[in-house]
Design a protein around this nucleic acid. Structure first.
Lengths: 106, 106
DNA sequence: TTGACATGTGACCCGATGGTCACATAACTT
DNA sequence: AAGTTATGTGACCATCGGGTCACATGTCAA
């Protein structure tokens, strides 16, 4: 399994994306704290976090018996750079900003 | 199945990512042309293209009996914006540029 | 209009993946 | 030391997803 394969497979599951959302909002949480946010057993959450960590989307640091989880956005940026060049990036961000503005007005 | 679920599921397969790479290099190709680039039957490729289209990553235009395929990078940018804010974006692009520079020197 | 070309559909097989549980290790507390 | 808390492991099962094939529709060219 290649590196990018691990990243995309990791992102393919909604529970794992939700975990990234949680860490994006606030970093450095433990498994137990994250578990309380999902309707799933601890084992399921641990399995998902392992997948995210092996993909490099989450990095961890041990603190005693706790394991702290942090979001690493570098692989996300690399996905972006794979299919969006500098020129297209400007067009697309302009388009998305315009769309957002129109939606706010309505 | 939600919209973003369709996008991430679509990106989870290496053959589909390769199809996006092909369309990123050159747009407007037909199924038959794309098929010749993959080691897979036409049916497999057609199935993958359908998944990409339903995810909005590929848009199509009919021209007679041919169907032309185009890359749409908007969903890719939205993935980026979900987990990378303006502040982090600057840090990360700097980091990636630095990494690239170092690799070129060695 | 007849044949060749480009694409579409539904069923099928099989390996991969999500979620759970029983069990286990390690660290803090009193 | 003993109980509690935080996390790790391997097996198990149900479902999903990738790839193929037989068959079908629609379009072009002579």
């Amino acid at each position: 399994m290649t590196d990018d394969d691990r990243v995309f497979k990791a992102l393919a599951d909604p529970s794992r994306r939700f975990l990234l959302d949680l860490l994006f909002a606030r970093d450095g949480r433990t498994l137990t704290e994250l578990e309380s946010e999902l309707e799933m057993t601890r084992f399921g959450v641990a399995k998902h976090l392992k997948v995210l960590e092996e993909a490099g989307l989450v990095v961890t640091r041990r603190s005693g018996r706790e394991k702290l989880h942090f979001l690493n956005a570098v692989p996300i940026r690399q996905i972006h750079d794979r299919w969006i060049d500098k020129y297209t990036e400007h067009q697309i961000t302009t388009l998305i900003d315009l769309k957002r503005t129109l939606e706010e007005e309505s």
